[in-house]
Design a protein around this nucleic acid. Sequence first.
RNA 1: GUGCCUAUGGUGUAACGGUUAGCACAUCAGUUUGUGGUACUGAUAGCGAGGGUUCGACUCCCUCUAGGCACCCCA
Length: 473
Amino acid sequence: MPFKRKALAKEPAPKKVLKEEPKKDLDEEGEGKSGKTFELLRGFRDILPEDQGRWNLVRDTIRSIAESYSFDRIDLPILERSDLFQRTIGKGTDIVEKEMYVFTDPSNRSVALRPEATASAARAYISHGMIERPQPVKMWYLGPMFRHDRPQAGRYRQFYQAGFESFGVAEPIVDAQLIVIGHQIFKSLGLDVKVEINSIGTSECRAAYLTELVAYFRQHRNKLSEDDKRRLQKNPLRMLDSKEEVTRELLQSAPQILDWLDETSKEHFMKVLEFLEEVEVSYQLNPYLVRGLDYYSHTVFEFTLQEDVGDLSQSALGGGGRYDGLVEILGGRPTPACGFALGIERIVRALEAKGVNPPERPPALVFFAQLGDAARRVGLKLFEEFRQAGVSVAEAFGKNALKGQLEAANRMGVRLTLILGQKEVLDGTIIIRDMESGAQEIVDVKKVVGLVKKKLLHEEGVALQSQTPVVEA
RNA sequence: GUGCCUAUGGUGUAACGGUUAGCACAUCAGUUUGUGGUACUGAUAGCGAGGGUUCGACUCCCUCUAGGCACCCCA
């Protein structure tokens, strides 16, 4: 299974290369050409079959809730022009400054693997003239994002986000509905999350506030850590969610952003809160909550894991807010908008910690045991008939002995096993074995599908799989 | 990106500066003929990579790679 590199190394002996060695990059050196296997790129991972149950649960839940709130799915490209993100997320942010996968593509364009999708959604809104559609335009997405950060549990370089974006309406009810949707998703997943909320106002009142905040911290500059000194200069709003003990104490008597909101911002925020109370979504005001992306304004919120499940360090499962200026930044007509994103890995992880482990797929209902090639041929046709009848069939083509096949059937926990040997092929029959009782019945192979279906329905009325294709999330 | 911790078959683990690196689970094959769940037998498979110290390294040191924790930051 693991791809052995040895095999590669044995290929045509490398011709004697002229003196100058090829540049020793990581491919040559770091991973070691004599090494045996290819390792995953750091921060990248496989989502294995055994994890798919949880992933499906999360994906399905998100999709069904999105649909029930009449959000439309949008799929956005993974690669975008890199300036899209520089313009929107903010040049000074870490995401853009040091975490973005930026490179020049073969046509000499600077492109980036998307670190998030809100900018793309806004771009799509503009480039497809969605402003001409009935507003709000509500869209959701789910897909991989890329940030070159140092990996940690619940933090990967390729990670999945689901997001909800609502464009075109400035009403506070939009903010509230988005929060409700996020809250609903966690609720139906059985996760206890806390909604933290704050308002960072418009860029104007925020600017005024920041002047004040910076002035305040300047007085205590000597007490600040190096990190915080840097923050104070680079992104003073970030002082609010500093983890430094000293800073947090200083914050107690620091100016509060809520006091600096203009009347409209204040009113907007109050209304959002009122709506939340109306639908009984409990929230927690957090005057220190800010967001890491530059485009936010007014309402900002975050969903954090309530319960202490194990030692889950990454407790923020999602977050978002209003970004009224974003569309304009990208050259569109001024358009209010609001949205949020969820970190799928973190949600899946929280479910895992809670012991939620749904099966990746429903187990097969019947097992097909075959003896000999003639039987295999017949079997291959039977599979299709069973599939059309909505009966899932498993087999173990790797095994020839009946014993081994029954063993496999048993392990899979099927209810019925069909046995087809030389004799049956000649007679046009097939054996149906009930795995529980061991009772066997020889039946006409032409009628087997109908009989099996009847048996399955009869015994406890097993739900046959629906034939509607499962839509990928 | 910074600091710290870790790295043994597919998985979980044991041991030792020097014999064939042990165990469990899993996998595969058998325990006479075309019939499962238990039991028994056997097989496959490992010291993350590279360098150094040493007579000798899986074991000590360094580098790299990967994982984890905290920070930066963020979902």
